[in-house]
Design a protein around this nucleic acid. Structure first.
Lengths: 251, 251
DNA sequence: TACCGCTTGTGAACGCATGCACAAAGTCGG
DNA sequence: CCGACTTTGTGCATGCGTTCACAAGCGGTA
């Protein structure tokens, strides 16, 4: 057991609240993967699969089997040695850890191309994330329903977010507006923000921001294209100095 | 010097190609940040700023100053001690490292809501990524221009990607179609893929995939919402069982 | 020219995450 | 009831990435 982390602040915890303590200890990277496992498991569940081994699941999720087991161990021991995991059990535990048992009301700000796409996603991929509010500066858009929800003016963010208990704000505005929108969301009490604008947002410590940056993604790919090209070039020129036809050691 | 990695395959390299060797050594995480620095620097450049210190730049990019300097050191020493960095110089070097000197032709597959949004982004955020081809299964869409480019049928992927030398493929299809589309892109010689479909793609080793997964992002945020809520609860109830006044060990 | 203050570049320590390898724990067949 | 086989859960080692702290280097000033 890796529990009992000698931090001097935790003594023994009750039974039920053990999850909460555990949640603090789950590495960020593992959380992202848990979400992936959850999707794969949901798919299996719908296909009628009831049990799965770490080997199968890890392959379906595109990760190492050992890593998968370690990730699952962060949320507790719900497998059966010699057998594997019960799909339903895993699904429900992961859902609980990820906080998907409660609904998270979502507000989308900036109803341009992307905002439209997001609003129309329809309840957002994976249940549990109802879009309950849309905002834009453009007065012409106000009142028009997109994906079933009428657009409100951006000035109403604070009031409406409070009223509808929005817990996640999605920023899909042009870059210059992003920070200001962010500030308003924060002052409305929104503590989690998903930012599509290519801008580094400044937020207080108690607000969590995740960024989806297309330009960055493209540039990372570009980097790899370039790296590949260079490698190919250096190979075709001559294997890093070591003989071409001679004693090629290379396995 | 961290060079001379004792892998037995690298000897000494010429002068100019030093970049190429360096590129292999840049940590993936650093590459992502370089892209961010580049954007910030571009903005500064447009604002007429010509010089910047690591402190200023790091703050604008939302990272630690030491980390920024280390990241920049991966691409070489282009700063002046006691002064800082020349904005233009940094911009051009980062662009070169990221492979942005050549153009990367992009193909978008799946012209739904998201595909539309992507096609309309107009040359893609940050120059250098011209969208040169669009594909969809829907015959009704074929021929219709989106963002200035006519949609082609998905069956033409291989031919057109080859012809237009597409180097980056963007998958914006529904989940079930993603793997098949991916396979076709790969067989057309595309080596870099940006995947928006919530599916784990199986690709050969020589293909680079980056994933943008809205559901996962939302669920990570959900996790943090839950964590916060738990923390708040445990604080308001009484600090982890240790006495408010009595020895409440919390049931 | 010599000194002073400022900022870069980087060696080294630290911490987190990954992967290995194996004991523990269960099932199944005899 | 026992032994063989399977699969989980995890201690440990390894490697990568982040952070610290400081020497090296440069411009400005007297």
């Amino acid at each position: 057991m890796a529990s009992q982390r000698g931090e001097g602040e935790t003594t023994t915890t009750p039974a039920e609240a053990a999850d909460k303590e555990r949640a603090r200890a789950i590495p960020e990277a593992a959380v992202a993967r848990l979400a992936v496992y959850l999707r794969v498991l949901s798919g299996m569940s719908e296909s009628g699969v009831t049990a799965v081994s770490s080997e199968e699941l890890s392959q379906a999720a595109g990760v190492n089997a050992a890593k998968l087991r370690k990730d699952l161990s962060y949320i507790g021991s719900y497998g059966t040695r010699g057998v594997g995991y019960d799909v339903e059990v895993l699904v429900s535990h992961i859902e609980r850890i990820l906080g998907l048992t409660r609904n998270h009301s979502v507000a989308v700000v900036g109803i341009g191309n992307l905002g439209h796409a997001l609003a129309n996603y329809g309840g957002f991929p994976g249940r549990g994330f109802p879009v309950t509010a849309l905002f834009d500066v453009d007065a012409d858009l106000v009142g028009i329903p997109v994906g079933g929800i009428p657009v409100n003016h951006i000035d109403e963010i604070t009031a409406i977010c409070r009223e509808r208990e929005v817990s996640i704000g999605v920023i899909a505005t042009p870059p210059p507006a992003a920070q200001s929108v962010c500030d308003r969301l924060v002052s409305a009490g929104v503590q989690c923000i998903l930012n599509f604008a290519p801008v580094v947002l400044q937020v207080p410590d108690n607000v969590e921001v995740r960024k989806v940056d297309l330009a960055v993604e493209m540039q990372i790919l570009s980097f790899h294209v370039a790296r590949r090209a260079d490698e190919a070039a250096s190979v075709s020129v001559g294997n890093n100095g070591l003989g071409v036809d001679g004693m090629v050691i290379r396995p």
